[in-house]
Nucleic acid binder design. Structure first.
Lengths: 175, 175
DNA sequence: CGCTACTTTCACAAACTTGTGAAGTTAAGG
DNA sequence: CCTTAACTTCACAAGTTTGTGAAAGTAGCG
C-alpha cells in the first residue's frame, strides 16, 4: 500500500521506514506523553523528532507530517525549548530553522527535574513550620521533604549508572 | 484575622497548626502539583490530606476546608483512588466515608509508575519495528526503550534504599 | 536596497475541562 | 419499612486551553 514513494526522496527504500507505521507510532507515543501531562502538540512534535533519522526536522517538515499550521509548530517548539527538551539551530546559509532533540536527551530532561524537586522541598519545609514540627502532619510532611531530597541525591547516581549501562548495549555511537 | 479558636476543638492549641498558615501551605503545595500535571481539585484534596493530623478526612471536612461542593470532592476522590494515591474507608457504624492517604505514600505512587513505564516501553519497542531496527531513528528509539527498562529496574532498589534511609531519620514511627 | 522565504505574534473560534446545583441512589437507624 | 444522612451522577454554565488564519516581523539573496 501506499505512500512509500515520495518523489524527490533519494535514499531509496523508505526514508524513515513505512510512513503510515511511523505516523502510527508517533501518534501512539505522543498520546502517552499527553496523558502524562504534556501539551498535545508539544508531545506530537517531540515524538516526530524522536522518530526522525536526523533527530531534527524543520518547521515545514513538522507542519506537513503532523498536518498542523506553522503557528502550532511555533507554539509547541517554544514550549519544548523552554523545557530544555529541544534545541533550535539555524542552517548556515538558509532561512530555515531546524529543531533538534538534544543528544543527551534523558540527561537534559532529568537535569531540569531536580530544580522541580528543590522547589517542592522548599514548599514542604515551610509547611512543616506551619503545621508545627511535632504534630503528626508536620512529621509526615517533613518525611515527604526528606524523600524529595533523597530523590534529588539519587538522581545523580542514577544517570551515571545509566551512562555506564548504555555502553553495554550495542546501539552504536550517539547520533 | 486569627481563627485559631474553633469552638468544639478539644486538643487545645491549634488542632492542625495555625489554620491560615496551613491553608496557605495546602494551596501552595497543591499549586505545585497542579503545575506538574495533576487536576486542580485532586491536588488540593491530596494536599489537604497530607496536611491533616490523621492523614484522613471525611468528605464533609474536605468540602468545608477547601470551600468546594460535595460533587467536586467526589470527582477528586475518584481520580485519586483510581491513581492509587488515596484509599476509601467507611467508619463502621456510620454513613461517612473517610479518605485516607496511604501510609506508604510514595511507595504506592511509585509502584504505579512502573506500569506506566512498561506501557511506554511497549510502545517504543513497537516503534523500533516500524522504523526499522537499523535506522538511526530505530536505534534511538531502542535506546529510549532501554532507558525505560533501566529506570524500571532502578526503581526497586531506589525504594529499598529510601526505606533504609528513612530509618536513619528521627521522624518517629509511621502514622 | 528591496524581494521573498521563513517564522512569530495576535485575535478569535472551537473544543475541552472544571465545578456547581439538583436529582437520584444507597444504606444506617429508628 | 420509612426516614434521613451521605455519597454519586447528571446536565449545564463558566472558564481555559488549543489551534487557526492573517498580519507583522526577520533575514538571506539577488
Amino acid at each position: 500500500m501506499s505512500a512509500t514513494k515520495d518523489g524527490d526522496s533519494d535514499t531509496g527504500a523508505g526514508r524513515d521506514g513505512d510512513e503510515a507505521a511511523v505516523s502510527r507510532f508517533v501518534e501512539r507515543f505522543a498520546a502517552e506523553m499527553t496523558e502524562a501531562g504534556m501539551q498535545r502538540m508539544a508531545s506530537r512534535v517531540f515524538a516526530s523528532l524522536l522518530a526522525s533519522d536526523e533527530s531534527a526536522l524543520t518547521s515545514a517538515e513538522l507542519s506537513e507530517r503532523l498536518q498542523i499550521s506553522p503557528a502550532a509548530v511555533s507554539g509547541a517548539v517554544r514550549y519544548l525549548t523552554q523545557a530544555g527538551m529541544v534545541g533550535r539551530e539555524r542552517e548556515p546559509g538558509s532561512r530555515r530553522d531546524r529543531y533538534r532533540l538534544h543528544n543527551d536527551l534523558w540527561f537534559e530532561t532529568f537535569t531540569r527535574r531536580d530544580q522541580l524537586l528543590a522547589r517542592w522541598e522548599k514548599v514542604l519545609r515551610d509547611g512543616v513550620e506551619s503545621l508545627g514540627p511535632d504534630s503528626p502532619a508536620g512529621l509526615r510532611i517533613a518525611e515527604t521533604a526528606a524523600f524529595m531530597q533523597f530523590l534529588d541525591s539519587e538522581l545523580k547516581g542514577l544517570m551515571t549508572r545509566w551512562h555506564a549501562h548504555r555502553e553495554t548495549l550495542d546501539l552504536g555511537p550517539r547520533t
